[in-house]
Design a protein around this nucleic acid. Sequence first.
DNA 1: ATTTTGAATGCAAACGTTTGTACAAGAATA
DNA 2: TATTCTTGTACAAACGTTTGCATTCAAAAT
Lengths: 347, 347
Amino acid sequence: MKKKTTIRDIAEELDITASTVSRALRNHPRISSATKEAVWDMADKLDYQPNNIAAALRKGKSNIIGAIVPTSDRSFFASVIRGIEEVIRDEGYNLIICQSDDQYSKEQANVEALLKIQVDGIIASVAKETTNFDHFKRVKDQGVPLILYDRVNESLDVNAVVTNDYLGSYKAVTHLIEQGCKRIVHFAGKQHINIYQDRLKGYIDAQREQGIPVDNELILENDLIFSMEKVVELGREMANKLLDMPELPDAIFSSSDFAAMGAMQVFKEKGIKIPRDVAFVGYSNDVSGSFIEPGLTTVDQHTKRMGNLAAQLFLDQMNESSKEYTPRKTLLNPKLVIRGSSLKCGE
Amino acid sequence: MKKKTTIRDIAEELDITASTVSRALRNHPRISSATKEAVWDMADKLDYQPNNIAAALRKGKSNIIGAIVPTSDRSFFASVIRGIEEVIRDEGYNLIICQSDDQYSKEQANVEALLKIQVDGIIASVAKETTNFDHFKRVKDQGVPLILYDRVNESLDVNAVVTNDYLGSYKAVTHLIEQGCKRIVHFAGKQHINIYQDRLKGYIDAQREQGIPVDNELILENDLIFSMEKVVELGREMANKLLDMPELPDAIFSSSDFAAMGAMQVFKEKGIKIPRDVAFVGYSNDVSGSFIEPGLTTVDQHTKRMGNLAAQLFLDQMNESSKEYTPRKTLLNPKLVIRGSSLKCGE
DNA sequence: ATTTTGAATGCAAACGTTTGTACAAGAATA
DNA sequence: TATTCTTGTACAAACGTTTGCATTCAAAAT
C-alpha cells in the first residue's frame, strides 16, 4: 500500500505548479498542448488517481446522488434504480441506494444520512407510512435538488415523475368490460396514497362511461404495501371474503399483482375457472405474474423509463440551479399487458 | 439556501478555537464538560451539520462502502444487499450499490468508479463473464478491503462468504431419491463458475452414495445466468429436448429456479403431471417459485445472512487492518424448502 | 520604438475538518 | 518551596484539489 500520487507529485516531477497540472488534467484551454501531453504522460507513469474527495470539498459537490426506495426487492423499484443509473453514470455521478422499508423513521434517517454525506441530489419515492414531509422540506431548504417518483406528495412542489395511474386503471377496467365482465371487484389500496386514489377513480370512471353501475360493496380497501408474502396472504383473505358473498364477481381488478395472485390461488383451489368464471387483472407487471397459471394480465408502468426521467429531471435541475426553477411533473402513460387471466373470449 | 455553519462559526461564537470545537463534538476526554455542553448547545442553535467530505479528506476515510451485484432485480441479490445494509449502517457506513449486469467491462468500470470515490471497502459477487481478476487485484493492492460473496474466485485470496452449494445440491438430490426418483436430470450451469461446479458434484455424489448410476446423458449444461425471461426460455428448450428422448426422466434438479419453472410450464402444457410423472427441484428460492403450480421445491441460501456475514467480514478486516490479516472463508449451510413440485408420496 | 494584446503559467487562498504538539495554569507530589 | 503531573485549550499544519488574480513573455498593433 504505497502512498497515492497526487497532483503535486506530478507538478514537482515536471517542474511546474500544481495548478497547471490541475488545469492540464481537466483539459483547460489556457494550457499549452505540450504541457498537457507531458502532464498526461506523467500522470499515467505515476499511476495518478484523482482524489475525488478533495475535489468535492473544494467544489462543494460530491457527484453522488442518493436514491430512496421503499424496498429494493420488488422488481418495480429495482427497475427504476436501473433506469436512474443508466442516465447518471454517463454524467459522472454515482448512486447511493437507501431503503426506507416503507417506514417513516427509516425514511427520515435515510434523508439525514444522505444530506450528511453531502449528496448532490435525492431521488425518492415516499414511504407508505409518511404523512409528515418535513424531512423532504429540509432537503429543499438546503438547496439540494429533490426529485420524487411514483409515490409523490403534491404539497412539496418539487420535480416529479409518476405514471398516469388513472389511465392505467381505466384501461384495465375497460379491457375487462370488453371481455364481457359486469361485476368487477376492485382490490383498492389505502386512499391516502396518491396512486391508489387515482386507480380507484379510473376504476369508477371506466365503469360509469360504459354504463355499468358502481357497487361500493365490490370495492375492498386494504393496505397493499407489505412484503410480497403478506400481500399474497391479503389477496387470499379477500378471495375468501368474496366466496362468502351470495354472488361471485366475474372479474377482479387488483391494485397489486401479489394480491391478485393470492386470490387466484384460492379460486383455483376451489375449482373456479380463471378467466372463464372470474377474470383477473393486476397492477405493476411484476415478473412473478408471468409464472402463475394462467398468466396475469397487468398494467406495466414503464419503470425503467421512470428512472430515466427522474434522473433527467435531476440533471435539468442541477443545470438551472442558480435560477429559480419551476418544478415539472412528468406523467408516464402505462401499458396494459394482456395475458391469459383476463381473456374470456379467447384470443 | 443560506450558507452552512461550520465548526469555525461555533468556535467564533463561543470564543474558542475550531480544534476545541472539533474535539468537543467528538466527545474527546480532554475537553471539559462545561465547554462540551456549550459547544453542543451552540451547534444545535446554529443547526450545525458536520461536513463529512472535509472529514473524509482529512482522515483519508470516506465511510462509504461499495457493493457490486451482478443484477439488483433478482431477489437473491436484493436480499444480500439488505443483509449488508443491516450491519454497516449501525457502524456509520453508507452503501453504494453498483450493477455489473454480469459483464466484465461493467464490473471493471464499477470497481474503477468505486476506487475513484474512495470507498473504504468493496463487497462483490463476480460477474459471470469475468475470468480476469486484475481489477480486483488492484483493489487489494490499494489496500482497500475486498470481500467476495457467492460467486468468488479462489486465486484472489480474500475474505469471502459463500453457501455450501455442494451440500445444497446433495440435499436436494437426496430428497428426490427419497421420493423414489431414479432417473434424475440435472440442469447444470457453466462449469467455470464455482457454484455450478459444486452443485454438479453434489448431484453426482448424492446419487453415487445411494447406489444410483450417474448417466451423463442426463446432465444438461447451459449458461443459466441471463435475464429471468431468457432463463425461463432456456428451461423450456431443455424441457423440449427431454421430450424428444426415448424415456422421460422422473425428476429434474435445476441449478436455477427459472429454468425449472420454464420446464414445468412445458411439461404442464403437454399434460405431464408434476410431481407424479416428473418431480422438480430448483435452486435459489426465488419468490416466484411460490406462485407457480405446484409450488417449486428449492434450495434456500440464507441470502440475508450472507449479506450480514459479508459486512461483518468487512468490519473485521477494517479493524485488523494494520496487521497482516488472514482471509477467512465463511461457508453457509443452505436449506431445502420443500413444496409440492417434489412430493411424489404425498405429504 | 512603444504600447497593446493574448497565451501560458505561477501564486496563494480557499474548502472544513482533524490532530500532533505546545502552552498555561492549577493540583499533586516531593 | 520547588518540581512534576494533570487538565484544558490554543496553534498551526496538514488532507488534495480548484480557481481568481497576477505575472511573464512574446507577438501584434500602433
